[in-house]
Design a protein around this nucleic acid. Sequence first.
DNA 1: CTTTAGGTACGACTTGAGTCGTACCTGATC
DNA 2: GATCAGGTACGACTCAAGTCGTACCTAAAG
Lengths: 111, 111
Amino acid sequence: MTERDRTGPEADAFDLGAVFPALADRHRRSVMTELAADCGDSERGCNSFDLPVSKQTQTHHFRVLREAGLIDEIDYGNRKGIRLRRADVEKRFPALLALLKAEAAGGTAPR
Amino acid sequence: MTERDRTGPEADAFDLGAVFPALADRHRRSVMTELAADCGDSERGCNSFDLPVSKQTQTHHFRVLREAGLIDEIDYGNRKGIRLRRADVEKRFPALLALLKAEAAGGTAPR
DNA sequence: CTTTAGGTACGACTTGAGTCGTACCTGATC
DNA sequence: GATCAGGTACGACTCAAGTCGTACCTAAAG
């Protein structure tokens, strides 16, 4: 169960009860917006998102995103990689990523 | 501004920063799921949703949905009608309603 | 006019989520 | 081995959000 926890739930186990709360937070949504905009599923470092919170809080946010099934966290021990689960997300919620990209483009003033 | 407040924001003023938190709540999402499933934009009564909360709380939830631009509240004085803003929502978030319908169909166990 | 049902306004309570401080772990570098 | 940077675990704090109690408003029915 340890390895599976690191990679999040299966694609068919996605639950809107987890996805919507995950995307309700401003910081997590900004992470997903960035990931959605990067068309290559390139792996990114945790601190490449420039979140204005402490690293403990970042750990918390990335965990929420992982448990919602939106990202994978690749553990290198003293380093961590973040990768969008684009295929799974697109399969389950076809327009979700487009939605997030629209936010970045539309520029609706962030509260 | 009074009448506009009753009918929610314009379609182009939709903000994901309001939509996602609105749908993060279990009760509000169940309301939206029911509305999405009803293909005719029929007006529904407030208590036709059978929410397990007091009427004060229902007032609160419907307000949040209205302020997010997802529904209209028609005020009859001592009675109130709820109507999904299907056209506006579809225009801005094409697959959002399909997403909610999927939750009802997929039957992902509600927490 | 009185009563009644549905809805709202305001305020208070309570739970949950976001946040950080401290301590500890891991792997790389010296 | 010692040091250091990145990440995690645990706990505590704080604030927002969901909830309800009381009081008041509105329109319809008697």
